[in-house]
Design a protein around this nucleic acid. Structure first.
Ligand code: MN
Ligand code: MN
Ligand code: ZN
Ligand code: ZN
Lengths: 140, 140
DNA sequence: AAATTATTTGCAACATTGTTGTATTTTTGT
DNA sequence: ACAAAAATACAACAATGTTGCAAATAATTT
């Protein structure tokens, strides 16, 4: 039963369990890849107000339930955090892949972001690595 | 004289030289870092229609005059291509840095993106690497 | 279990950002 | 200087994101 898991996830993150949050979390759990705001609006049907989706995603981000993935087309994607992340502190050192064929965005959990040497004076907080190309399913 | 350089840049890319294009190109040449659409609107004053800025950026992208830099906050930045890039074919294998203090985005031309091994089945077209932290100017 | 309190939601109103079509203006090539 | 081609402004619109607040719902206390 997924219902249980969802409830626990919300409670573990000190969030009150509501219809909207359950539904959105369910979407993430069903989905292999990442979701954009508009994906969620679409998949959730007419059930929730747009504003609720915005606020839910924001609170999920803050609590470390999801992380955001920047893209080149001005449409942030969101994906579930696998490990235990908390507000601001995401252990999110994996590469993200965007398929130019199917449009899917996935977390490549197995591919970690290599270290780089920054020029003198620069200090790094966070590193994102974003690969686009053709995904496993679309490569023949 | 920068005027000359701008004219040549436009002509080299088979673009008719117009007031708007000259102004926007000038902004890029003056600027150390990258510019967002709204930066450009603001810096160009009330001189140009918003639509013109959109279309100019698009044509600059297509011609390989500028490249786009994805960000986590849904606001694509644009920066001049240093090398000779042409439509679609950008030789843009450097890391981008976003300063959390001053907000500037810069191309780290000297820092190239390390190669990674993708899982079987995935093929890469383009790789972006985006580091956020504190830049040279803001570090003390 | 009911009441109280705290939190979330929907709605409305608005701001910002991005898109498209078209008439006018400007640039280019002759 | 002229004709053809291209760029621009303007208008109208669509999509996306933000804020305040009243009503609804969830959590907590009695
Ligand atoms: Mn991820
Ligand atoms: Mn760059
Ligand atoms: Zn694919
Ligand atoms: Zn800085």
């Amino acid at each position: 039963m997924m219902e249980k898991k969802i409830d626990e996830l919300l409670k573990k993150n000190h969030l009150s369990v509501t219809g909207g949050r359950k539904k959105i979390l369910e979407l993430f759990l069903q989905q292999e890849g990442a979701l954009s705001h508009s994906d969620i609006e679409r998949k959730a049907g007419e059930k929730f107000d747009r504003v609720t989706v915005y606020r839910t995603l924001q609170v999920f981000l803050e609590k470390g339930l999801i992380h955001s993935i920047p893209t080149s087309d001005n449409s942030i994607r969101y994906a579930l955090c696998k490990e235990d992340c908390s507000g601001g502190h995401h252990h999110d050192d994996h590469v993200h892949f965007i398929c130019n064929t199917c449009g899917n965005t996935v977390c490549l959990e197995g591919v970690s972001i290599p270290a780089i040497r920054l020029p003198r004076g620069y200090s790094a907080d966070q590193v994102e690595m974003l690969v686009s190309g053709v995904c496993k399913s679309c490569n023949i």
